[in-house]
Amino acid sequence: MTVQSAVVRVIGEAVKPLGFQRHGHSWYRVTSDLYAVINVQKSRWDESCYVNIAFSPVSQAENSWLPEPKCQVRFRLDSLKSVTPEGLRLLGVDSGREVSEVEFRSSLASKIGTPIAQFMSRITGLDDLKDALDSAVTERVFVHRGMRSLLDSAD
């Protein structure tokens, strides 16, 4: 099992109960005013992967789907304050080689899946997203100009 497929599976187990659906290497959810997607991207250099989290107004999702790069708010997992450096190392190329597959998946679940699910469970609308960006995410976030005005008016 590759790191990417293990991460996709663990994230799915964590966010499917929150209403997320799978689309390739991504999990997405549509609420009344917000579209959210979690994408697991394989590195082009080795077997490691990145976890990208993104949001857009629901009106931009065509047939309930919008790829992560087209979303108006985007950041990587390392921007989530609740994810530790130890958790991020699990996404690396050698992360699962020192332990059994069961131990590796358990570590992924506790250090990646659970923090993502806890973060995403709090965000069901624009107001929640604004609060989360203010409190649970570092400043390394791309926010499209059009989305800034929506978030500023979400109070």
Rank of each mutant, 00 (worst) to 15 (best):
M1A: 13
M1T: 14
T2C: 08
V3F: 09
Q4C: 15
S5Q: 14
S5N: 12
V7C: 13
V8F: 08
V8R: 02
R9I: 01
V10E: 04
G12R: 13
G12P: 03
V15Y: 02
V15I: 14
K16Q: 09
K16R: 12
Q21N: 15
Q21C: 11
R22D: 07
H23T: 12
H23V: 07
H23Y: 01
G24R: 10
G24A: 02
G24M: 06
G24Y: 08
G24H: 11
H25P: 01
H25M: 06
H25D: 14
S26E: 15
W27Y: 02
W27C: 03
R29H: 10
R29F: 10
R29I: 12
T31S: 09
D33W: 02
Y35M: 10
I38H: 00
I38L: 03
N39S: 06
V40A: 10
Q41H: 00
K42S: 11
S43V: 05
S43M: 01
R44W: 10
W45S: 13
D46G: 03
D46F: 09
E47F: 03
S48T: 08
S48W: 12
S48E: 06
C49R: 10
N52E: 03
N52P: 01
I53R: 04
I53T: 04
F55R: 09
F55N: 04
S56H: 12
P57N: 13
V58C: 02
S59E: 11
S59H: 09
Q60A: 07
Q60E: 11
N63F: 04
E68D: 09
Q72R: 07
Q72D: 10
V73Y: 06
F75R: 06
R76H: 04
R76E: 13
S79R: 01
L80N: 04
S82R: 08
S82N: 13
S82L: 09
V83F: 14
V83W: 09
P85G: 09
P85C: 11
E86D: 13
L88D: 07
G92Y: 11
V93W: 06
V93Y: 04
V93N: 15
V93H: 11
D94M: 07
G96E: 03
V99L: 02
V99D: 00
V99T: 00
S100M: 10
E101S: 09
E101Y: 03
F104P: 00
R105N: 05
S106K: 06
S107E: 14
S107L: 04
A109T: 01
A109L: 06
K111S: 14
I112C: 15
T114R: 15
P115D: 10
I116L: 11
A117F: 02
F119Y: 15
S121L: 00
S121V: 02
S121P: 02
R122L: 12
R122T: 08
R122G: 10
I123M: 04
G125A: 15
L126V: 12
D127I: 10
L129A: 06
K130I: 13
K130M: 05
A132P: 10
L133A: 12
D134S: 10
D134Y: 11
D134A: 14
A136R: 07
V137R: 07
T138C: 12
V141L: 05
F142K: 05
H144P: 03
R145I: 07
R145C: 03
R148E: 02
S149Q: 07
L151D: 00
L151I: 13
L151P: 00
S153C: 03
A154I: 05
A154L: 05
D155P: 09
D155A: 07
